[in-house]
Write a protein that binds this DNA or RNA. Structure first.
Lengths: 310, 310
DNA sequence: CCACATAATACTCATTTCGAGTATATATGT
DNA sequence: ACATATATACTCGAAATGAGTATTATGTGG
């Protein structure tokens, strides 16, 4: 066995929602690609991986992480090399927060900059039909043999074919990576891209970690009340709906959304109302923390709409 | 920052089902507690973590892993120390296989040996009311202050209270650990246990990894057709049901189970039948691999029963 | 060969959930 | 007062779900 050393890196996708924009905290080193807050794990100082994460995120971004969740551990050679040449195994985390001030060198950025094909709120993103599907068709045909062709065809169909599954964010990103449609592929393989480059690239494998974070969050929304970690203490039901829509990248049916949320006992009215510019004032609600005790698996079911507008 | 080094360990919960018994491959070092197959990750030789896993599992147990899935990365100090004193960060994997021959030094063992409170197929395990709940009540009362008491009460209620959620395997194990009801707690804290010790202990944090694996598998069953990885090429619908029941630790409604499975197009008849000792012969079915293309998220929904027998 | 016991498979039915609407209520601006 | 905008309530049919009963196909002991 070799003596090559390993170091552990911790990366965090710190997510917030501002109105209709789901955003992620990024570090912008001048000139370089956007990066997630990232730091080494110091085994001598830290008892757990998560405490290590909290510590240097606090130092680096002055953020107090609330809800955090481990996502995945990536160790692929070539997708993240340290300067010293040691192998970096990176453990990705998802953290949810109510948006606050950021530290210098960091900024909130809408996550659909990195994944423009994931936002179906207004309509199916045009780039899917205009750019992605034609390029993926070519990717299918370029397969080395018949078996690989069939496998690729299936993957394309599952990812971008009939029936959009909003949770398959990582699968779609990985497919686009392998098909050479994102910049990271060319950077990692040391070649120059002559074709389309979709979305804004990120440092190392950070866009992959972010894809994992979005996928996990979109899934979790449906069976755990995690949205509330992102909301202000009180909110209107439409604000809550907009937040869920922003995360899921889908529009929901307003009346059914409120029915689901109410029936599940996830919120309770405060008796206070907002003062909108126009229209009837909406009641302000708060999250009922007690549901965590009452119901075994409370969550905001989506109630996806199939046609027309809300 | 210190120079303490880290090494990466890879552990695999390799799962199979033999009839009605869900089992896991364990390594039995003489005298020591049961362990999951476990090996170091060699960054010089392996391109990805998963390929590292496959390699030494193959060497150590002669197993060819089929379906594998990363579970979680554990880095807690004190719950896994290497001999040399270096910190070990362990990445846990779940692997599904059709049971075959094991290598020397390994054995299949029913997973409910390690988690006897998780098997509700016959009835609610008696130990929950007789041992667990009284001990947890004490744990709640021993909390240092009122706030901690309330928090502990909630956790006990979610884990073992009304409405059994079969997926919360890890949460329950962690609660029992903190309450000192499993041997690992006393071993890790260097003290001797004077109270009850539930289930068979494992080496290091392997029982925690196994709990994570069971939880993940129980969840995934419902929305991805993973059971079929554990079945023979052909099987009767009752055999399939028994396998799902074994994994979920619950009984299902037979007629509804077959309706779900059939309607979802997960299986197709072979036209052949088995030859039972008594009763009508059952048709042998096979998994329809094409559903992976057809349906966005096929899985065996459980169709849990609320009363009586099937 | 005929009743059973046993298990597989088919069919029924009430209830709940879901998607998609329409209807009504309460604001503001003119 | 009324047009407009939004919040909230209620309705309705289709599908999914939970829990049965009914029927069919075997082997076995009289």
């Amino acid at each position: 066995m070799s003596k090559e050393t390993v170091s552990i890196g911790l990366s965090a996708a710190i997510v917030a929602v501002e109105g209709e924009r789901p955003s992620v905290l990024v570090v912008a080193y001048d000139g370089a690609a956007d990066a997630l807050p990232f730091g080494p794990f110091d085994p001598a100082q830290q008892r757990t991986l998560e405490s290590g994460l909290r510590k240097w995120v606090g130092e680096q971004t002055r953020f107090d992480l609330g809800y955090t969740e481990q996502l995945y551990t990536f160790g692929d050679k070539g997708r993240h090399e340290s300067a010293a040449g040691t192998r970096v195994v990176s453990v990705g985390y998802l953290a949810l927060t109510r948006q606050g001030k950021e530290a210098p060198e960091t900024a909130w950025r809408g996550w659909y900059h990195y994944f423009p094909w994931e936002d179906w709120r207004d309509s199916k993103p045009a780039m899917i039909d205009s750019t992605i599907l034609p390029a993926l068709k070519k990717f299918v045909n370029d397969a080395p043999n018949a078996e690989a062709t069939e496998l690729r065809r299936e993957r394309v169909n599952v990812c971008f074919g009939e029936g959009w599954d909003e949770e398959r964010v990582l699968e779609r990103y990985e497919l686009l990576y392998e098909a050479g449609l994102v910049e990271e592929f060319w950077r990692d393989s040391g070649r120059t891209n002559k074709g389309p480059s979709l979305g804004t690239p990120m440092l190392f494998d950070h866009r992959r970690i972010l894809a994992t974070a979005i996928a996990r969050l979109r899934g979790k929304l449906k069976y755990r009340p995690v949205v509330f970690e992102l909301m202000a203490p009180t909110f209107t039901l439409l604000e809550l709906q907009r937040a869920v829509e922003a995360l899921a990248g889908l529009r929901l049916h307003k009346q059914n959304f409120r029915r689901l949320v109410a029936e599940q006992g996830l919120v309770e009215g405060t008796g206070k109302f907002n003062a909108p510019d126009r229209g009837r004032p909406a009641e302000l609600f708060r999250f009922r923390r007690v549901v965590l005790r009452e119901r075994p698996a409370p969550g905001v079911r989506l109630g996806v709409r199939r046609s027309k507008a809300s």
